[in-house]
Amino acid sequence: MIKNLILNIRACLGRAQVRFIGLKRDLYWIPFDVLLPLLGVSTFIFIYKSLKMPPITYTFVILGGSMISYWLNILWSMASQLYWERMTGNLPLFFIAPCSINSILIGMAVGGIYATSVRALSIILLGIIFFKIPIYWQGLPQAILAFLLTLISLYGLGMMLSSIFLLSGREAWHLSNLLQEPIYLFSGFFFPIKTLGFWVASLASLIPASLGLDSLRQSLIPESKPFAFLSFEIEITILCILSIIYIYMSFILVKKIEKIARREGRLITRWQ
């Protein structure tokens, strides 16, 4: 039991290490990693500026922009990763290794979170420096709690998606693309989800980023309370439930999909 646990922890760290090293290996890209994401989201800040909106809307955008980094990481480095691994020939190795595939997925998530956090934190820091976004630092402990729960449920969702993407063929690329703008809209990355109306916002709450972002905004921008969809406590409770459901579902799904993939020979099929 303990031996098995140690093996899985080692597998998890081993898979995460590739991403830690990946970040260190490309040190000369870090300035780009830090500066570029801000360029993309600043368009929305300037739109709010042209509409003479108060600076708290800039904070909305900056927090949304940092959350986008995680969503993109989930889509391109979690959900479609098993598909890429199959294409590069690593996937069968993952499945014949004595550890659980879940520990490899968790390792991927841990490595992904580490690499993406550089980008996400830099968006916030640069937002503070360049756009002087107002942030209520006293709300930081609440924000950290909301943030951690959001990441757990988001990466749980990512692990679920990676199993689904494993079955898809070449169209995995399209699926990832399709999950960008719709999620940006329903998660309210650039505006509060309350604007979508109660029913749409309720459905959108199934995406952890929606409630996570809403609760982050509530804790870091007290003036945003009138734009909040639900109270902070309710959002945290829902995020806890979503975390459990998504992680549990991902464990179940990966087993089922592995069976199908083994039976249909999809673990080794390339270029389809």
């Binding site: 929305f44 709010y48 509409l51 809307t57 960008q180 703008e181 650039f190 979508l196």
Partner: peptide
Amino acid sequence: LIRPIFGVAIFYMVIYFAQ
């Protein structure tokens, strides 16, 4: 079709939220 529809919707919601 999907991406532009949602891209346009995002811009609309941002403008709608503001004004």
